[in-house]
Amino acid sequence: MDYKYIVVGIDGTGSREWMAADGSNSNTFRFIRDVHYGSMEIDRRWYHGPSNTVTGSDTEPILQEALDFIYQRIGSLFPTIRTQSIKPLEMFDVNSCMQNQERSRQNMMEQRGYQQAARVPVQVTSNMLANQPLTTDDVRVVLIGHSRGGLAVTALARMLSPLVRVYFMGLYDSVDRQGCLDGMNVENVKYVAHARRHPDVKSRTYFGNTSLKYIGVDHAEEQFFYTSHGGIGGSFIINRKEVSTFGDSSCLPTITTQTPEGETIELINNPALVKKLGKQMDQVCTDGSHEADQFIRTQAKKYGIPIA
């Protein structure tokens, strides 16, 4: 059976700055590029991740743009869906900040003596999922995300609930670093693969993972890999000169420190893990990054997605 595909990828924070011109250090970009179906910008689309490294606030317009693309593509493939006025969920339904603002507005109106029906977010229900007009036999939606991009595609899958179930979601170390979007629950997805950074690498220890509760998913598989948060997504730093003030130094082969006497000395980075794996951290991260990407691709191939 020849399936139709809609394939969308959203990269991690700051990808405009760290991604190579050919996309070779972005596992998300390379995944979308390597799917052997249709054309880029028509059936397959990749988006840079947010540029706001602190709040990730620009994740929301990226999410909306990706949703609009999928909905427009569905409208082209299945024009009768539009005539039925079946639409995806709105940003309000996945955005806690917008919901809090609505509650504040409602309370203010009630204090002034006005009675108005409060807007409440639409929840994903079994009835909604049972009455989707499209199935994964009609169209296979594939969502791929790294870092905050993983958070975005998790919200995107939920927003597609009235229309169609997402066939496959590949997550490269999805993190919850955007205060308004809640992506802990992965819903409306058939198959999930999540590659996560191993805590022993000590990369971005203050980043909490999200997309960890798989609700109604046929099969979800998580694996941990010995590489940094960036390494899971394909980009990691092994040159000390490239580490910024808030950069990730977990993949450096050596680190510098000072003795009590003020002498600068160089030490092996993460000696316990280096001893365990028998290679320095730059090679650990290189191997782990490749293995994480292969894990996502292998899972996708297992479910019939035409990727190299």
Rank of each mutant, 00 (worst) to 15 (best):
E41D: 15
N188D: 06
D176W: 10
P88G: 01
R148L: 14
N27R: 13
K190A: 12
S244Q: 13
A308P: 10
L134F: 02
A117Q: 15
I305W: 00
Q64N: 12
L160H: 03
V142K: 00
M159C: 02
L267R: 14
T286G: 12
S161T: 12
Y172Q: 09
L181I: 07
E60T: 13
W46A: 07
D282R: 01
Q72A: 13
G23Y: 02
V192S: 02
M91A: 13
Q111E: 11
G183T: 00
E102N: 03
H36V: 13
K276T: 08
N209Y: 08
V94P: 01
T154P: 03
P50K: 03
N27A: 14
Y303I: 13
S126D: 14
A117M: 14
A195C: 04
A130H: 04
F236N: 11
P260N: 08
E187F: 05
W46S: 10
A193V: 07
T245L: 13
K275I: 00
I6R: 00
L171N: 00
V186S: 01
S104C: 12
T80D: 15
T254H: 10
M40K: 13
I265H: 08
D200C: 02
G278C: 02
V175Y: 07
Y172C: 11
V217Y: 10
M1A: 12
H48V: 06
M128L: 10
N95D: 15
I86H: 01
D43K: 01
V124C: 07
R204Q: 11
E17K: 12
T264Y: 07
S161E: 07
A195M: 04
Y37A: 01
K275C: 01
N269F: 01
T55F: 05
H219Q: 15
H290W: 10
Q132W: 01
V94D: 02
N270K: 00
R165V: 10
S250K: 05
G14Y: 07
E187I: 09
I238F: 02
L134P: 00
G113W: 03
L212W: 09
K276P: 04
W46M: 10
I215L: 12
A117C: 09
L171A: 04
G233Y: 03
E187V: 15
E266M: 00
G183P: 07
R73E: 09
I6M: 04
Y47H: 10
V186R: 03
V124S: 03
Q116R: 15
I255M: 09
R119F: 00
R177K: 14
V120A: 13
I305C: 02
P306G: 05
E60W: 09
I255P: 05
L77T: 06
S96P: 03
D43V: 07
R177W: 09
G231M: 04
C97Q: 15
D34F: 04
D58V: 06
T286K: 14
R196P: 02
L181C: 05
L277N: 04
Y47F: 13
L171C: 05
D93E: 07
Y37F: 08
V122G: 08
T59M: 08
N269E: 06
G179V: 00
R240C: 09
G149R: 09
G179P: 08
L151A: 03
F29R: 08
A300Q: 01
D248Y: 03
Y167A: 06
V164F: 04
